[in-house]
């Protein structure tokens, strides 16, 4: 395959940045998108150029590092795939691919296609945990959880924190991420204890960090590589209003 690329290049956080054009021949349809970028980088290095910086780690869809906005979609085309799981067979021979970093005020570009997603960690630090004394493991049946809730909590917990929801949202809202992190705990008895403080703290931190407000376009759900549902956002809203009324 022959692929034309238009890639955002930016030297550092302060630099202005612009799109650069590249062409790559002999791209195998079996290559993953990141392998294709590796081939491009090898070529750039051989030519004495600066390789394109992009984030990646596990390359199997579990770490949430890869984060490319390809032709108008976070993680490119296809449902429930991360960029690392995306294959070149998803594109046509001779196609032009426009590759951009996640764009959000709260996710500043560090270099080229890498953005700083520390904001997500800050939201977790604000309350995305339960306070338990570490010790020997408790008996598994000592705290009972309803099966449906446990299943739902696992679904919410499958969020890998990649930030595709923020990238996809026209408002750069982080609510799908935050609501998944709130839900995975709020649904279980262990998480209920601190539920109100948690939702207050995490929502306040999210606002502070400059993410936009959800306007229920549901683009986040459409683009989430892990299929996190917007019902999480509704749950977060309920949790939040309950916390405001009671606490």
């Amino acid at each position: 395959m022959n692929i034309k690329l238009k890639i955002w290049r930016q030297k550092n956080a302060k630099a202005k940045g612009k799109f650069e054009d590249y062409t790559l021949d002999d791209v195998s349809p079996e290559m993953s998108f990141l392998e294709m970028l590796d081939a491009l980088n090898t070529k750039l290095i051989e030519e004495g150029g600066d390789p394109v910086a992009y984030d990646h780690d596990c390359r199997e869809g579990i770490c949430g590092c890869c984060s490319l906005y390809i032709n108008g979609n976070p993680h490119g085309p296809g449902e429930k795939t991360t960029t690392c799981e995306l294959h070149m067979r998803s594109f046509k021979d001779g196609q032009t691919l426009i590759v951009e970093p996640w764009r959000a005020k709260s996710f500043p570009v560090i270099k080229d296609l890498i953005v700083d997603r520390n904001a997500f960690d800050k939201i977790i630090v604000a309350g995305g945990f339960i306070s338990v004394d570490a010790g020997s493991a408790p008996d598994s049946n000592s705290i009972l959880a309803k099966k449906e809730n446990a299943d739902e909590a696992i679904n919410s917990a499958s969020c890998i924190g990649c930030g595709a929801c923020v990238a996809a949202c026209k408002n750069a809202s982080a609510m799908l991420f935050v609501s998944a992190k709130i839900s995975q705990l709020a649904l279980l008895p262990q998480g209920k204890v601190e539920a109100m403080d948690r939702v207050n703290a995490m929502v306040a931190r999210m606002d502070e960090l400059g993410f936009g407000n959800c306007t229920n376009t549901y683009a986040c759900e459409a683009e989430c590589p892990k299929g996190i549902k917007i019902t999480n956002i509704a749950r977060m809203n309920r949790e939040f209003f309950a916390a405001k009324v009671v606490g």
Binding site: K6, F19, Y69, N71, G72, N73, P74, I98, E100, R103, A104, K105, S106, A168, K170, N171, A172, S173, G210, F211, G212, N213, T215, N216, T217, Y218, A219, E221, A222, E223
Partner: peptide, 24 residues
Amino acid sequence: IQNWWARPHRYKVEGWSHKSPFSK
């Protein structure tokens, strides 16, 4: 206005994955 501020640098390729047709 806050939502516009939240993305000061817009994408070159606009996203169209919203599921509620008039939400944009």
